[in-house]
Nucleic acid binder design. Sequence first.
DNA 1: ATATGTGTTTGTATTTGACGAACGATCACT
DNA 2: AGTGATCGTTCGTCAAATACAAACACATAT
Lengths: 271, 271
Amino acid sequence: MADEHTTGSPRTLKTVSRAFDVVRALEELDGARVTELANHLDLSKSVVYNYLSTLRAEKFVVKEEDTYRLSLQFLLVGEYVRYQNILYRIGKPEIEELAEKTGEYAHLATEQHGLGVNLYKVSGEKAVGSDYQVNKLQRADYLHFSATGKAILAHLPKERVEWIIDQYGLPGKTEATITTREELFEELETIRDRGYSLNDEEEIKGLQAIGAPVTNRHGRVLGSISVSGPVRRMKQPEYHEQLIESVVNTANVIEVNVNMEESDDDFPTFS
Amino acid sequence: MADEHTTGSPRTLKTVSRAFDVVRALEELDGARVTELANHLDLSKSVVYNYLSTLRAEKFVVKEEDTYRLSLQFLLVGEYVRYQNILYRIGKPEIEELAEKTGEYAHLATEQHGLGVNLYKVSGEKAVGSDYQVNKLQRADYLHFSATGKAILAHLPKERVEWIIDQYGLPGKTEATITTREELFEELETIRDRGYSLNDEEEIKGLQAIGAPVTNRHGRVLGSISVSGPVRRMKQPEYHEQLIESVVNTANVIEVNVNMEESDDDFPTFS
DNA sequence: ATATGTGTTTGTATTTGACGAACGATCACT
DNA sequence: AGTGATCGTTCGTCAAATACAAACACATAT
């Protein structure tokens, strides 16, 4: 503990990082008491106590009896962030219509930090019952095995895709998941060529999804949409074609409306 | 800088507080650049830069071009928190049914840090059109002028209500808002006696709401529900009685189901 | 070209948080 | 009831982590 004095830039604030360690621990543990957290994080009780007190004063943590939990403040801020997203504002009603028209699950997703985040999801009539999708706990997930994810990857700059693969690798989920760089880049080119993406049981066995990207007028991909359902139904030729048509069409509608609103805007890059 | 050495407990970590100052500023400003934030927060550029870099490393902030924004990480954590809430899990489908049956807006709310937070809201058929409610930006709001809020206050311990009034006061919103302590406590007693709360244009002119609390088997209030609509419709005598019936009934159903799941649980107090 | 703006980097002074021990309260067990 | 362990909380102290300001590289505008 004597050599590395690297005060390299950017200088990340350890106190802030530790505060978020506490947040993550409270999430993992579904709430915890001081001692429990202290053990979990390898910190002294008094230190943990101070972090919790601060987070509570900031209203991001609540205390019930002696148990500390994350507060709904995260939801309030989160819904603000989502509402700021133009793809969400414009896409939500369109996705609802898509779900109603097709009767399947419909998703609206975007990319952040190299992972996919669902902005919104609805289940159509046929999908009801096995609603493991809509009520599933939201996590940011890999982009390379979902229809929405691959639609996004296909329209991200190559060097950005490379960076994402370097960061997260290409972990498999089912036997169909694409796990090699070459295969993925080929697939992405196919997606670009035909205008839509396909997730053929690559994430969940038995589930197929059809996705399409939404880009702004500078060609930057803002996110993507998809419909998904059981392979048996999704693979029927005429139905399949019909779904592709609906998805691509909805993506286009969203795209047009987004670009009309984004007239006087900057065109940001990433991360 | 020589007198006040008060190191009172709990010792709140200034670095963490400042990180959340940055978060709040990014929300207020809808994203900002380094210099803009530094001015807004009265901090030096380099300091702000370090906070932003740290928040970005933690994935709670994204950088687009030179503008920093809050990330969807807040939404992911927020949805986790919401899903942890048993009132949400049980109440969501019931509220949906209530909205469908009545055709009005239905809300599911809870209390946190002395303020009301909507866990969920749906609009029934009659409510469509003026959906200023469903797409409105979520904020934690005062409890004393909403039907859900008053239903909660009515079942909180008196000392807790006192604390809340001391903290936030009783700001008026319309001419009908209750703004004095005595009036409020009277109202709360009425609510307890008759089993439901009424918001008669106390929050928004022209809008009436009927609310009912949901308590667990220890008598602690977990939250509340409400339906709301235009006064003209809501005040029709038979319809009014019918809505009260529906709201109270739905609250009871939720209550029963929550208490069946909460069998082996602690009974926490507040904040 | 020059001046003013940006975001970022770095050296340094000192504020601030980590540590460990101690306190008071609660709970479990004999 | 009494004893011991364990909990959350408080506090004094020193090392470490952060705030500051000045300088940097780069861009844009005059």
